[in-house]
Design a protein around this nucleic acid. Structure first.
Length: 282
DNA sequence: GGGCAGGTGTAAT
DNA sequence: ATTACACCTGCC
């Protein structure tokens, strides 16, 4: 049984799902496959709507709409971003990206794993975690009861203790993820930084991709390169300087600016080198 | 086979 | 506040 989600331009499902904010959607033949609400789901955009296969209940569809952020005012957002002369040049290649509203716990785990790692292995690790601990995604309680050795067998490497300690703290009620939603960006960031394995970059990813805090500007190696090249005349700049500059320039749309810069520089490199992006085989 | 890959923790300045 | 260095492990 298929359902339809209406979308308005310039929303683009392909760019939204493959701009680095979510790791668990596989894309092939114009269709995205992934897990949502505990079910295998297939998504395909047909002009002004998204065809959804795999969901039964109306409330699951509503939740999916929320997750995909199809209601984001992208037209207005991109219009504002185009006032920046760099983004004005980039946007034709990146238009349609929406910041999703992911589950905070899943997002947190995903990006702790992402540190000093590569994308195929991050995806593989998440798959192994879900497979070994069952469910659509292992809860804090489940991971809190896991054995360190067992976690390591999911390719977590040195990150396994971080995940275990984080899960224990959250499961024991020592850190309430849901409460961060109402906490302002700066304070929520400080709180996230107290978790093991969470540094500036991961904290900003979670604040942006799960809590919708638009001031967040995650600086990874790619965004660093992009900002140095296009905003600092090719001069090296510290991570903090880059973040401060971004917040000053883009304010609450810093996160959107980051997504467009990231998506563009990653793909530009790919285009130059001739389609050598490493994607894990299905 | 050696180096690389979406940073973070730790120690020292 | 800023900087240097080690780090699991699969993959190219």
């Amino acid at each position: 049984m298929a359902a339809l989600i209406p979308v308005s331009p310039p929303y683009r499902l392909d760019r939204t799902l493959s701009c680095g904010q979510a790791f668990r959607w596989q894309w092939q033949d114009g269709t995205a496959t992934g897990v949502f609400a505990g079910r295998q789901v297939r998504l395909k955009q047909e002009q002004h709507r998204i065809r959804v296969e795999g969901l039964q209940k109306p409330e699951q569809l509503t939740a999916l709409q929320h997750y995909l952020a199809v209601d984001e005012p992208l037209r207005t957002i991109e219009e504002t971003l185009r006032r920046d002369r760099i983004l004005r040049r980039i946007l034709p290649h990146t238009t349609g990206i929406a910041l999703m509203r992911q589950d905070p716990w899943e997002c947190l785990v995903s990006f702790v794993i992402s540190a000093f790692n590569n994308i195929p292995k991050i995806e593989l690790t998440l798959e192994k975690l879900c497979h070994r601990y069952g469910g659509p995604f292992p809860s804090p309680q489940t991971l809190a009861g896991a054995r360190l050795r067992e976690l390591r067998s999911c390719l977590l490497g040195y990150r396994a203790p971080y995940l275990l300690e984080m899960a224990k703290r959250i499961a024991a009620g020592g850190f309430e993820l849901s409460e961060l939603a109402d906490v302002p960006y700066a304070e929520a960031r400080k709180l996230l930084l107290t978790l093991p394995g969470v540094g500036h970059k991961v904290a900003d990813c979670v604040l942006l991709f799960a809590y919708g805090k638009g001031e967040a500007f995650p600086v990874d190696v790619w965004v660093k390169r992009a900002v140095e090249r296009w905003y600092f005349s090719g001069r090296p700049a510290t991570e903090k300087r880059i973040r401060d500059a971004a917040r000053a320039r883009f304010g609450p749309l810093a996160g959107y600016a980051q997504q467009h810069l990231y998506y563009y520089i990653r793909n530009a490199v790919t285009w130059q080198r001739g389609n050598t992006v490493t994607r894990r085989k299905a």
